[in-house]
């Protein structure tokens, strides 16, 4: 166990070094004045901006996270229902699967203003946008997972007299878990980005609103601080989902 932890550290060391190197180059570029300071703030300035605005950033994060979470939960819920329906009724699948793919070609940024016009400046348009973007990877992940369930295993259960519901519970659902989680990871990242984008287009608080404000003030250091914060939040969410996945699929680590 200990050995494995050591080897993961060794695996991740190159990435950490590369990141540190990049930050160092960035700092040097700013120090030597290669790029003027008002266009590219140095990492030190970004950190200072982050610390200075910490309270404000956290307040806005809470709003954004709340939207993202709500959208994600509803997205997971509808995605699940849709996937189950498409799996149970091939007609539903034939009707809606192509439509689902088409909806994904509509750029989020293009429908966001419409949603604001329809639903106002409160939380509703944000949540709707997140549901629209997260629901797709989840539905596709689950539907594919259900479809890939082992046909022989299903036959075996049928031979034991299992009904449709039991086959779903014992075969289809557990076989779809890995795909579900890869869909969920993507959806989680989308949900944060979706929340920020919809906040740009109208709202009173949230990281997106903060972003538009500091942009109009040309506060580049704060811009960078909030951008980094957003990616950190996304990474943390994905890591959290990874942990849940590990806990729910212990058998994948059994082969040793």
């Amino acid at each position: 166990m200990k050995k494995r932890r050591l080897s993961t550290i060794r695996d991740k060391l190159p990435a950490a070094l590369a990141l540190a190197g990049l930050v160092l180059v960035w700092e040097l570029v700013c120090l030597t004045g290669l790029v003027p300071g008002y266009m590219l703030p140095s990492p030190v300035k970004v950190v200072r901006a982050f610390v200075g605005d910490f309270g404000l950033l956290m307040e806005n994060s809470a709003v954004t996270l709340q939207e993202a979470f709500l959208g994600l939960v509803i997205g997971v819920g509808t995605g699940f229902v849709f996937a189950v329906l498409m799996d149970a009724f091939p007609v539903v699948r034939k009707m809606f699967y192509p439509l689902l793919v088409i909806t994904q070609t509509i750029p989020t940024v293009a429908i966001a203003p419409l949603l604001v016009l329809w639903f106002g400046y409160e939380i509703t348009p944000k949540v709707v946008l997140i549901v629209l973007t997260t629901f797709f990877p989840l539905t596709v992940g689950l539907t594919d997972g259900f479809a890939q369930a082992d046909a022989d295993a299903i036959n075996l259960l049928r031979s034991m007299g299992a009904g449709k519901l039991q086959i779903f519970r014992y075969i289809k659902l557990p076989s779809a878990l890995p795909q579900f989680f890869s869909g969920l990871r993507i959806a989680a990242a989308y949900s944060v980005v979706g929340a920020v984008i919809s906040e740009w287009l109208g709202g009173f608080s949230g990281l997106g609103v903060y972003m538009t404000r500091v942009r109009s003030a040309y506060a580049f250091d704060k811009m960078f601080a909030v951008i980094i914060l957003i990616s950190v939040i996304s990474l943390l969410l994905m890591a959290l989902i990874g942990l849940v996945e590990r806990a729910m699929t212990p058998y994948r680590r059994a082969r040793e």
Binding site: A153, S175, T249, Y251
Partner: peptide, 18 residues
Amino acid sequence: RPGHVGYMLQKDMLLPYR
């Protein structure tokens, strides 16, 4: 009418997640 006679295949068909 399935559900009366036990069945076993060449593949053991043990579910990997149980």
